[in-house]
């Protein structure tokens, strides 16, 4: 079992989706996340173990490489695609309760901002690390965040902004979320923000990279 799961982790780390996928070149012709996940389930491996011992370590490794500038956005997206392919096999088990996600993370790019590549990467990385992710998209108002929170009590909120002029909307959104639902955790990210800004606006965490968000969630929820 451990060999199968470590092979699965490798597929996620290097973005090997399935046998037909030519990427990465060094794994051409080999089985990918699709086939190995199916095989693991057929062999009776617990879906929770597939998630926590196969998929999540792979996502964690690619997250760390991205933080260290050893890989770039395209490679992370390939890992995310391998991950989502594997998750398709696991989804029925989550629905049946045989496997559980760690918690819920609601993410969106703040009002006035359309940039979403960074937000998407965070969403994929968080999902790949065992959380349910609700992506509200871009140009998202406080009302939308609060409505999503009411539907998903105890979820953590992630706010993203790329523009210097929309980071100010983070302050308003954070304040309104915390007024409406005290105790909600808010993590922020994006090019113009930093830890000082996070503290100033009363958010709970700033992460310069997706892996930082995963680490924050793991500390607070998992």
């Amino acid at each position: 079992m451990s060999e199968l799961l470590s092979k699965l982790a490798e597929c996620i780390e290097f973005g090997k989706i399935n046998m037909a996928s030519p990427y990465p070149p060094q794994m051409k012709g080999q089985e990918g996340a699709d086939e190995i996940t199916r095989k693991a389930l057929d062999e009776g491996v617990n879906p929770q173990d597939i998630l926590s011992k196969g998929l999540m370590p792979g996502m964690e490794r690619i997250g760390i490489k991205f933080r260290e500038n050893k890989v770039f956005v395209p490679q992370v997206l390939m890992s995310a695609k391998a991950m989502s392919t594997a998750m398709l096999h696991l989804k029925p088990h989550f629905l049946s309760g045989a496997a559980k996600q760690k918690g819920t993370f609601i993410i969106g790019t703040v009002l006035g901002d359309l940039h979403d590549i960074g937000k998407n990467l965070v969403g994929m990385m968080v999902e790949g690390n065992g959380y349910k992710v609700i992506d509200l998209g871009t140009d998202v108002s406080s009302d939308k965040f609060i409505a999503a929170l009411k539907e998903n009590p105890n979820a953590v909120i992630g706010l993203s902004a790329l523009l210097t002029t929309t980071m100010v909307n983070m302050e308003k959104i954070t304040r309104e979320i915390k007024e409406a639902l005290p105790g909600t955790l808010v993590t922020i990210g994006g090019a113009p923000v930093n830890n000082d800004f996070c503290m100033k606006i009363g958010a709970d965490n700033y992460s310069p990279d997706p892996q930082g968000v995963v680490e924050f969630l793991n500390t607070k929820i998992a």
Binding site: Y23, P25, F72, V73
Partner: peptide
């Protein structure tokens, strides 16, 4: 700009 600085892009890119 995709991040492949000076190296050949692997498939499928």
């Amino acid at each position: 700009l995709l991040g492949f600085n000076g190296e050949e892009m692997p498939e499928p890119f």
